[in-house]
Amino acid sequence: MIRIDLPVLEKDIRKLKVGDEVSLHGTIVTARDAAHKLMVEEWPKFVEPLIKNGAIYHCGPVMKKTGKSWKAVAAGPTTSIREEPYEAAVMDHYKVRLIIGKGGMGPKTLKACKDVGAVYLHAIGGAAPLLADTVVRTKAVHLLDKLGVPEAFWEFEVDGFKGIVTMDSKGKSLHANLLRQSKKKRDAIIGI
């Protein structure tokens, strides 16, 4: 298990490779469909200090409010491929070092990992209470009223958030490999 403290230096991220198991410590920020659309349309300034040399987490959590503080009840990853049209531009603009989600992403994001110096970290899809329990504090929430609970920008301080690198800054992607291998098998099974 490789420990990464956030924010992180580009040179440390470039050392990571596909298959590495990573544990994260520091701040990660949730952003999913509406947040990505908003970022590329408006390039909001408030986002910059949150994710520069930091991490975007594709997640729409279940949150519970007690008094003034918010607690993450369930916070697993959502499917990342929906952000494929936006992610490369977001990574480049804000200098994001880690994209966390599930299911992997496509060639545009893989190229951005190489160009910007970033990796894609795959968290376990559906493991929501397990991952929520690594959130030691909800530091802030942005645009909650406008975007709603699942789509808002949640700033999570995490301690030991686990994931596996499936796309690295050298241009390797576990997802692209498996797609190729399983396509051969599909063709054989279907008989075409």
Binding site: C59, G60, P61, V62, V73, A74, A75, G76, T78, I124, G125, G126, A127, A128, P129, L130, A132, D133, P150, K162
Partner: peptide, 20 residues
């Protein structure tokens, strides 16, 4: 992790997955 997560969800009455 999936199995540990299910056990945790059941014991603490929390959603197994945040996407309900």
């Amino acid at each position: 992790d999936v199995l540990e997560n299910c056990d945790l969800a059941s014991r603490t009455s929390r959603p197994i997955c945040q996407d309900t």
